Amino acid sequence: MGIEIERRFLVTGEAWRGGVTEACRLDQGYLAREDRVTVRVRVAGAAAKLTIKGPGGLVRPEFEYPVPLQDAEAMLATLCGGRRVAKTRHLVPHGGLTWEVDVFEGPLAGLVIAEVELPAADHPLALPAWAGREVTDDARYSNAVLASLDAPPRG
């Protein structure tokens, strides 16, 4: 079974930008969200994936499958409605791990979230200075919830 072990943080300041090694624009939409299970389609450059995520916070089931780009674009256009997120993902190495700093666009402009996948739930994590409040267990900051918002969450 696929497992995702991930922590998420709001980002403070711009210091993370100096460590960026790569960036890619992502367009993703949610085909289904029910009982804390989500089905997402994502286009990243010329690649596309269908992802199914189960309930959980730090640790949760995750299954990813490549899909033809043309099919993914059609799903985004016809099946996702207003449940979409556009963002640029920046890769920032820190503390032996690669952090993904997402800069959101459109109605979520101004929101910046960093996430880091861990090899184990108890893996020690050296937080960069720009990692602010942890939102791993705050459902308001899940991409599935953000995809339906007209503005970033407050608080």
Rank of each mutant, 00 (worst) to 15 (best):
R60S: 05
R60D: 08
R60T: 11
P61S: 14
P61Q: 10
P61K: 07
P61N: 06
P61V: 06
E62I: 04
E62C: 03
F63N: 07
F63Y: 08
E64Q: 00
E64N: 06
E64Y: 01
Y65E: 12
Y65S: 12
V67P: 09
P68K: 08
Q70D: 15
Q70H: 10
Q70F: 02
Q70E: 15
D71I: 01
A72E: 04
A74E: 15
M75V: 11
M75T: 00
M75P: 10
L76P: 12
L76N: 05
A77H: 04
T78N: 13
T78L: 15
C80Y: 04
C80G: 13
G81P: 13
G81S: 12
G82N: 14
R83D: 15
R83I: 04
R83P: 00
R84M: 11
R84F: 01
R84Y: 01
V85E: 05
V85N: 15
V85F: 00
A86Q: 14
A86H: 08
K87Q: 14
K87D: 14
K87V: 12
T88M: 05
R89C: 12
R89N: 13
R89I: 10
R89Q: 12
L91F: 09
V92Q: 04
V92I: 11
P93H: 10
G95T: 07
G96D: 10
G96I: 07
T98S: 07
T98Q: 05
E100Q: 15
E100F: 02
V101Y: 02
V101F: 02
V101L: 08
V103N: 02
E105T: 10
P107Q: 04
P107F: 03
P107M: 08
L108T: 09
L108H: 01
A109K: 14
A109F: 01
G110A: 06
G110S: 04
L111N: 06
L111C: 06
V112W: 00
V112C: 12
I113H: 04
I113N: 03
E115G: 13
E115D: 15
V116I: 13
V116C: 09
V116P: 11
E117I: 01
E117D: 01
E117G: 00
L118M: 09
L118S: 04
L118R: 06
L118T: 07
P119Q: 04
H123T: 14
H123A: 15
P124H: 05
P124A: 06
L125M: 06
P128E: 09
A129P: 15
A129H: 11
W130S: 03
G132V: 08
G132K: 04
G132D: 06
V135N: 08
V135A: 09
V135I: 12
T136H: 08
T136K: 07
T136G: 05
T136R: 09
D137R: 06
D137H: 10
D138Q: 00
D138R: 00
A139F: 02
A139L: 13
R140P: 01
Y141V: 04
Y141F: 15
S142M: 13
N143P: 04
N143D: 14
A144K: 00
A144W: 00
V145M: 07
L146P: 00
S148C: 11
